[in-house]
Simulated scan of single mutants.
Amino acid sequence: MKILVKLDELHAHVRANKWMRYFTTFIRLALVAGFLPAGYVKIIGERFTDLHNNQPMGHYLEALHHTGYYYTFIGYAQILAALLLLIPRTVVLGVLLYLPIILNICILSFAVRFEGSLLTAPLMVIACIYLLCWHYDRIKYIFPFTQPLVSPLPQNNKFPIRFFALVFAIFLAVGFTVMNMYKIVPRNTLSDCETQCDDSDNPEACKVFCESIHNNGQDLDKSLKIYEQALKNKRR
């Protein structure tokens, strides 16, 4: 129970800081901006990007575009989540709808190594988790524990330097991780893909990978196997 009391006290302390409230509003608006355009494109029935079908993410989005009302349903879900985030009384409901959608996009981005959302998707997931923590006082009642009562604290105008330093560190850590977690990625076009070959340990094997993706239309796993085989052949 002491842990719950400490959590409530910490939450009350954070909620009382005006800079934290400003930051939370910024996070909400940023998430709204991330889903409104994406949802609108799906509702009007347009393809989400101009990636060609041979590119792994482009292949997925093309198939998704042809799913009919399921594609439109995703658009309405994104718009609804964004609108719920705009209304203070429905923020928690909006986050609970937003989080599984963006988590799916995040995992998809990692699965197909799509650089377009390798950074933004995990940051948006973290932003959703932050909003859930911010509204801890609303969601804590779903846990099977006796909840202590903590009175609201007066407004605190002190700038939370440590918190924003932590936010900056998380941004750098996520950015560094996603930029270095893969030796090779398909990128959006053949020319973009081949730009990474100059810095590759084996430029020819890299070009084989890019051509396998963008010219031959092979899926990512098969193209990676072709790339690994090209590396082995080069070493012999």
Rank of each mutant, 00 (worst) to 15 (best):
I3Y: 12
K6I: 10
D8V: 02
E9M: 14
A12V: 00
W19D: 05
R21Y: 06
T24R: 01
F26T: 11
Y40L: 12
Y40K: 11
I44P: 06
R47A: 10
D50Q: 11
H52S: 07
P56Y: 04
H59Q: 14
A63P: 05
H65T: 04
H66P: 02
Y69N: 15
Y71S: 04
Y71V: 13
F73L: 10
Y76V: 07
Y76M: 14
Y76H: 02
A77H: 07
L80N: 04
L83A: 14
L83M: 13
L86F: 08
R89M: 07
R89S: 13
R89W: 09
V92T: 08
G94F: 01
Y98E: 09
L99I: 09
L103R: 03
C106S: 12
I107H: 15
A111W: 08
V112K: 00
R113W: 13
G116F: 11
S117G: 14
L118R: 05
L119M: 14
A121S: 07
L123G: 05
L123V: 07
L123I: 11
M124T: 11
A127V: 05
C128F: 09
I129P: 02
W134V: 07
W134T: 00
H135I: 00
F143K: 00
P144M: 12
T146P: 03
V150D: 10
P154R: 08
P154G: 03
N157S: 13
K158Y: 07
F159A: 00
F164A: 02
F164E: 13
A165L: 12
A169P: 03
F171H: 09
L172D: 11
L172T: 09
A173R: 12
A173N: 09
V174L: 04
G175M: 10
V178N: 00
M179K: 08
Y182H: 04
Y182G: 00
K183S: 15
K183H: 13
V185S: 07
R187P: 08
R187S: 12
N188T: 12
N188D: 14
N188A: 15
D192H: 07
T195R: 05
C197P: 03
N202D: 14
P203A: 02
A205F: 03
A205R: 01
C206E: 01
K207L: 09
F209P: 07
F209N: 10
C210T: 06
E211Q: 14
S212H: 04
H214D: 02
G217H: 05
D221Y: 15
D221H: 14
K222E: 15
S223D: 01
Y227C: 06
Y227A: 02
E228N: 06
K234W: 06
R235H: 14
R235T: 12
